[in-house]
């Protein structure tokens, strides 16, 4: 029901404010729309245009800047010929896939666990995982860089505890002291996955718990009466009812993990090891490492945006179809 209908029903004369009630929502939206247009939409279009231009020092210097040259698809063709792009793309995709899956699995597990625990124990555990969730991304990177430190890191200390034969059989080494984790791309991403999963599973767990609590108990009783096994109950009762929650959690995790920057920046000590770049870091390095190649950086950002939109298009459609946007 809109405000106009109320006004009519109550026989109230229109307020003498002179504002047509139909215009009110638009007036309320003005500041928000202006901010988004100026700070999000306009830059997005600009980035699209810049990806076809050559923008370097002559174009961005304060004194007497030169207009940008139109180079057509050159930025894109150069990027596709660059090996670093392909390794960055692979790093981005593999990392997102592994991190999102692990986050959802661990988070769901902990969410189900929280529901089974007694009130007191579950409150304590929620507060504990809240700590992991609340740590700022930069501090997450700092902490895990320290845990994975070659000499004084706890990870190497813990691996040294493994019996020598087991460690030899699994990893081909028994002595872990001094083994660097953050030099090679492959091991950097192991550290990054640990960091990101550790920090993001609590959100999934708490959301799943909230979802579980909203399912009426009678459904579980009915399932029990019908002799359903716990796994069957999860598959036939819990999962279908929590599907919308999982859809939102998946899309949010994908969006966050595709764009991970702060943690990687700290673990890598800035854009140093090019083989360990993801697309975000690659774009940043192209645009802001001397010599700045802003056009090329913009092109990488455009590619990343398109990938994200494709990956999430399905879920966005789901959300638009459901009542979310109604």
């Amino acid at each position: 029901m809109t405000d106009t209908s109320i006004a009519r029903r109550s026989h109230r004369p229109q307020k003498a404010s002179g504002l047509n009630p139909k215009l009110i929502p638009y007036v309320l939206l003005i500041p928000g729309v202006l901010v988004m247009a100026a700070l999000l939409l306009y830059p997005m279009i600009q980035a699209g245009i810049m990806s076809f231009q050559k923008v370097g020092i002559p174009q961005i210097r304060d004194v007497n800047p030169r207009p940008a040259d139109w180079v057509g698809w050159e930025n894109y063709t150069k990027i596709f010929e660059n090996d670093i792009f392909w390794s960055a793309l692979r790093n981005t995709l593999v990392f997102a896939f592994v991190a999102v899956s692990l986050t959802l699995i661990v988070g769901t597990g902990v969410g189900v666990l929280l529901q089974q625990l007694s009130k007191r124990v579950s409150t304590v555990l929620i507060v504990a995982i809240m700590f992991a969730w609340a740590v700022p991304p930069v501090a997450q990177g700092v902490i895990w860089r320290w845990l994975f430190d070659a000499e004084a890191g706890i990870v190497n200390w813990a691996l040294n505890l493994l019996p020598d034969f087991l460690s030899n059989a699994l990893f081909g080494r028994a002595d872990w002291t001094g083994v660097p984790w953050l030099n090679e791309a492959y091991t950097v991403y192991i550290a990054l996955i640990m960091t990101v999963v550790w920090a993001s599973f609590p959100f999934v767990a708490v959301s799943v718990l909230a979802g579980l609590k909203s399912i009426p108990n009678e459904l579980y009783e009915a399932a029990r009466v019908d002799g359903s096994s716990p796994w069957r109950t999860f598959r036939s009762v819990t999962y279908p009812l929590l599907k919308p929650v999982f859809a939102v959690l998946t899309i949010l995790s994908i969006i966050w993990d595709f764009k991970v920057f702060s943690q990687l920046y700290v673990l890598l000590n800035g854009p140093t090891n090019r083989l360990a770049f993801n697309l975000s870091m690659f774009s940043y390095a192209e645009a802001f490492r001397p010599p700045p190649k802003m056009g090329s950086g913009a092109a990488i950002a455009v590619i990343l945006t398109i990938i994200l939109l494709i990956v999430t298009a399905f879920y966005v459609r789901q959300m638009i179809k459901s009542e979310e946007v109604q």
Partner: peptide, 17 residues
């Protein structure tokens, strides 16, 4: 829908402009 979509745009795309 715009609200949903702009949240997907990576910071790097906005950073340069």
């Amino acid at each position: 829908i715009t609200l949903l979509i702009v949240q997907m745009v990576p910071a790097e795309a906005l950073l340069i402009p």
